[in-house]
Simulated assay, not measured.
Amino acid sequence: MDTPAIASAPLLAAARGGLAELADPRKAPDMRRYMKSEMPFRGVPSPERRALVRRLVAEHPLSDVDAWRATVLSLWRAAEYREERYLAIDLTGHRRYAGWQEPGLLPMYEELIVTGAWWDYVDDVASRRVGPLLRAYRDTVTPVLWRWATDADLWRRRTSIICQLGSKEDTDTKLLTHSIEANLGDREFFIRKGIGWALRQFARTEPAWVRAFVDAHPALSPLSRREATKHL
């Protein structure tokens, strides 16, 4: 039986301690209010948090993917402040660990998406983690996102729609079409907004394709249509 990977206790302690040192109680209530978060904030601005991540990676390097994944998930699952979860996502994207990005990480990213269940977490994971995996491992990742497009969970579905925001000419239009068409009747704001965002972004690369798609889908919500055609 394989021994479960152990999270890096020094990194976790340094992460929580670093956020506590950077905390600004004056900013925390407004940040929490803006994000409509049940979890409290420390009040740490993004630039300071990212600088902390760079220091953590330099001072507490992780030697293998299993320890890295265990550390990310430990920080995420035990988080008491929202910035701890932001920091966990930051760790998944640090360039030191870029070589570990492969389809076996999808279960971890899926957990962040489903348990995070809000746009600030999901959008970053969808576009900056799942999207690159899709482009690098199409045969493996496409079927997963194809299923997510019709999943009962709204955030899996949003991920299937917006994961290709950075794909440009590498956009899989078949997957994009499927993800949008599967959700045309959904009245959830984050789905309708996601559809418009995905189309608007792809219009920067293929405006004619997006115009034709919009014209061919009269069932698009007014919000999705307005977002999609904003720059056409």
Rank of each mutant, 00 (worst) to 15 (best):
L184E: 13
P218W: 14
R200T: 07
R211L: 08
L175Y: 07
F213Y: 15
G185D: 12
D186P: 07
I195K: 04
W209Y: 11
L184Q: 08
R204E: 12
L199Q: 02
L223W: 05
I191L: 15
L220I: 04
R225H: 10
T205A: 09
L176K: 09
S224T: 00
E188C: 13
R211N: 14
A212R: 13
A219W: 09
G185K: 04
L176T: 04
R204M: 10
E206G: 05
R200G: 03
A208N: 08
A198Y: 01
E227W: 06
A212E: 12
H217Q: 10
G196K: 00
F202R: 13
F190T: 08
V214S: 08
A208D: 12
H178F: 13
A208L: 11
R225Q: 03
E188A: 15
E206F: 14
W209Q: 08
Q201M: 07
L176C: 08
H217A: 07
E206L: 12
F202T: 03
A216E: 06
L223T: 12
P207M: 04
P207T: 01
E227S: 03
V214R: 14
S224R: 01
F213I: 03
L199M: 01
L220S: 14
S221C: 04
G196T: 00
L220M: 05
R226F: 06
A216G: 14
L220V: 08
E227A: 02
R200S: 12
A198V: 08
R192Q: 15
W209E: 02
A203G: 15
T205N: 09
R204A: 15
K193Q: 12
L223S: 05
Q201T: 13
A198F: 01
N183I: 07
E206Q: 12
A182Q: 14
A182Y: 05
W197C: 00
L184R: 09
T229Y: 06
H217C: 11
P222L: 06
E206C: 06
R225K: 14
K193M: 11
T229V: 15
A198S: 13
R226T: 06
E227I: 02
L184K: 10
P218E: 10
L199A: 02
R192C: 11
V210P: 09
L220N: 09
N183C: 08
P218G: 11
P218F: 13
L223H: 10
A216W: 02
W197S: 01
R200F: 05
F189W: 13
R211E: 04
G194F: 03
L223Y: 10
W197E: 00
H178K: 09
F202H: 15
P207C: 11
S179Y: 13
R192L: 00
F202I: 02
D215F: 04
G185M: 04
E188D: 14
E227Y: 01
L220H: 07
I195H: 00
I195E: 01
D215G: 09
H178W: 12
G196P: 04
L176V: 07
A216R: 10
R211C: 13
T177K: 08
D186K: 11
A212D: 14
K193V: 10
A208H: 13
A203D: 03
P222C: 05
T205G: 07
E227R: 01
S221A: 15
W197A: 00
S179L: 14
S221M: 05
Q201V: 10
D186W: 09
F190M: 06
F202K: 08
S221W: 03
I191C: 04
R192E: 10
V214Y: 02
L184C: 09
G194P: 10
T229G: 12
L199W: 01
I191A: 02
